[in-house]
């Protein structure tokens, strides 16, 4: 079986330089440093110098949140230059005239970038394992969280690649990728609050749970909080989501909706990217 040559090339050239180990070192240092700080701050209370095992869950939630933030920050930087970089380097035409399809080229680029993120995520497992010492978080919880990371990475990665195919310059593609993240994370919330307010103003009972989920379903941070609050038994965004106004008796949770939404967005973005770079398809690739 032949490995996708684009994937092979990307992995080889990316992991060969000093940048890859430095990225790994910086990433793990930030995560471990942050983890140690909150572990110290939470586990050893200054007022009675006692240890409450329940606080381990807070450490887990904050650590997971830190990882989520790092992933979201890194992905556009890793993906937005994939195709525009080829264009800037004047190597794109040489790829497009070969027998490998545009789909394979896009997938090779996406998988290579996601692999780099996955490497960081897997390398962070030992840091998360510290939590196991204290108990309270099951392996299933961690696997679910990591699955969520993977899906979010693929979604944001496919947006980054789409921007990279659409915009000629890497800098523009990177900025627009971050704008997409802003729209997903803050834009959805703004729309949600406007709709909520509109609902109250028109004398209704506020948005229902289903409406709330549809409005903020694309928000990666809320999706993440939805997973975490279940795992640590907290109630962080239930009020925001109008969980108690559920006339349709909707059972789906925000993170589940988010996973489906992200998968659909990923597929659309990948297909648009493929169409965009296909020779003879567009006028100004």
């Amino acid at each position: 079986m032949m490995i996708n040559p684009v994937l092979r090339l990307e992995l080889k050239t990316k992991l060969r330089t000093w940048k890859a180990p430095v990225l790994l070192l910086v990433y793990l240092t930030i995560l471990a440093g942050f983890g140690s700080l909150i572990l110290l701050a939470t586990l050893y209370r200054s007022y009675d110098n006692s240890f409450d095992p329940q606080d381990v869950l807070t450490v887990y939630a904050l650590l997971a949140g830190c990882q989520m933030g790092l992933i979201i920050l890194l992905i556009p930087a890793l993906t937005a230059g994939t195709i525009s970089g080829e264009r800037e380097r004047q190597t794109l035409d040489l790829l497009l005239i070969t027998r490998v399809s545009s789909f394979s080229i896009i997938m090779g680029k996406l998988i290579a970038s996601i692999s780099q993120i996955m490497l960081l995520i897997f390398a962070s497992i030992p840091i998360f394992s510290v939590i196991f010492i204290f108990g309270g978080v099951s392996l299933i919880n961690i696997l679910l969280l990591f699955l969520y990371y993977a899906v979010i990475s693929i979604m944001l990665g496919s947006i980054g690649i789409f921007c990279s195919t659409y915009f000629k310059k890497t800098t523009v593609a990177t900025v627009v990728s971050y704008l997409f993240i802003l729209i997903f994370s803050i834009g959805t919330l703004v729309v949600y609050f406007i709709m909520q307010e509109y609902s109250y103003m028109t004398g209704q009972n506020g948005l229902t749970y289903l409406q709330s989920i549809i409005l903020v379903g694309g928000n990666p941070f809320l999706g993440f909080i939805s997973i975490i609050q279940n795992q640590v038994g907290a109630d962080i965004i239930n009020y925001l989501l109008n969980v108690y106004n559920n006339p349709n008796n909707v059972k789906i949770e925000l993170w589940q909706f988010n996973l489906v939404f992200n998968s659909v967005v990923s597929i659309i973005m990948i297909l648009l990217s493929v169409i965009r770079i296909r020779p003879l398809a567009g006028k100004n690739r």
Partner: peptide, 30 residues
């Protein structure tokens, strides 16, 4: 595609790639 070999007027190369790896990459692409 397999009948035509094309060399553009302007082209770039990849960083951190050796000559035989460069050739191997395009061999894979074909």
């Amino acid at each position: 595609r397999e009948k035509i070999g094309y060399m553009p007027d302007f082209f770039g190369v990849y960083d951190n790639l050796k000559v035989d790896e460069y050739m191997d990459f395009y061999a894979g692409m074909y």
